[in-house]
């Protein structure tokens, strides 16, 4: 299963990024093989609608689940339409969040956790 984690740095021990559209890095991890890669936020230069643009990027990358800190209303709607499961983790490292996800300890959300523009 391909999982994306928002992170503040480019390694697995980097802190989880609490913002989705405005995260610093995406860590794309394959839970089956254990391989992973870090991608700098591909939509960082865009002025707005970054949650939507990010959901579109995850769709293109065939990501099936996302782990992040918060989701705005547009991002939540876009991920739901794309059929990407969104899981919320608070603090800690990306690796710990991934471990919690694999063990089924993360909460899946279907709606926004914060209001629009909270990540600005």
């Amino acid at each position: 299963m391909k999982v994306a984690i928002t992170a503040q740095g480019s390694s697995l021990d980097a802190a989880l990024a609490p913002r989705f559209g405005r995260c610093q890095y995406l860590l794309l991890c394959n839970t089956a093989g254990g391989d992973w890669q870090a991608v700098p936020n591909p939509v960082a230069s865009q002025p707005g609608g970054v949650g939507i643009a990010m959901a579109q990027y995850l769709t293109k990358e065939k990501v099936q689940a996302l782990i992040t800190g918060n989701l705005g209303p547009n991002a939540a709607r876009a991920l739901a339409a794309a059929g990407i499961g969104a899981y919320i983790a608070q603090g800690g490292s990306a690796t710990a969040a991934l471990q919690a996800f694999v063990e089924g300890r993360l909460e899946q959300v279907t709606g926004p956790t914060v209001s629009a523009h909270s990540g600005m």
């Binding site: 865009q46 707005g48 609608g49 970054v50 939507i52 643009a53 959901a55 579109q56 769709t59 547009n74 709607r77 876009a78 991920l79 339409a81 794309a82 059929g83």
Partner: peptide, 18 residues
Amino acid sequence: AFNAIAVLGDKALVFPEL
């Protein structure tokens, strides 16, 4: 230019407020 329309789940989806 404003991410007001995106293709998600095989179909275009509009975000009218953007």
